[in-house]
């Protein structure tokens, strides 16, 4: 019995090492590789809303099924924002935004990639207001910009 247990454990270890080597190797070869060790900034943006990938956000944007919500300060928003986005700062008064909870569109909040926490706070407030389909844009405004997607800016 014992040799069988040892042999099984050895097989399992070999299989796992092979998978780790392949996975890490293939990830290293990818253009859109992810770091082996994630940092909280990659994810920790909201206590309730999920993250949405830029590709999915783009598809919803193209289909006209998304409302983008810029959670950065008014000043930065005015300079440059995703085409058609609303500006709701974490401290904004949301009393007159009840219509957002009636819409069928996806509500996608974003901030800059380094201040994604703001997007999370706004997403949580929207959910508390009764909105559904609330997401936070992964990578924030910079990811949208890098992907060359439509923006509006003041001249």
């Amino acid at each position: 019995m014992r040799p069988l247990v040892t042999a099984t454990a050895r097989e399992a270890l070999i299989v796992t090492i092979a998978a780790a080597a392949l996975g890490i190797g293939m990830n290293a070869l990818r253009e859109d590789r992810i770091p082996l060790i994630a940092s909280p900034e990659d994810f920790a943006v909201s206590t309730k809303a999920e993250l949405i990938r830029i590709e999915d956000a783009r598809r919803l944007f193209d289909e006209g099924r998304a409302v983008f919500i810029d959670a950065r300060s008014r000043e930065i928003f005015v300079r440059q924002h995703i085409e058609g986005a609303l500006n709701i700062e974490p401290t904004s008064n949301v009393a007159n935004l009840g219509w957002l909870s009636q819409t069928d569109s996806y509500l996608i909040t974003y901030a800059s990639s380094t201040t994604q926490g703001q997007a999370g706070v706004v997403a949580d407030r929207l959910i508390e207001m009764g909105c559904t389909n609330v997401y936070v844009l992964r990578g924030g405004f910079e990811a949208w910009l890098e992907a060359g997607l439509p923006i509006e800016e003041s001249r």
Binding site: V15, T16, A18, A19, A20, L22, G23, I24, M26, N27, I34, P35, L36, I37, A38, S39, P40, D42, F43, A44
Partner: peptide, 14 residues
């Protein structure tokens, strides 16, 4: 956090 990406990278191959 430190385990999320490692799991995402290795588990599908496993």
């Amino acid at each position: 956090y430190w385990a999320i990406n490692l799991m995402a990278i290795v588990m599908p191959w496993l």
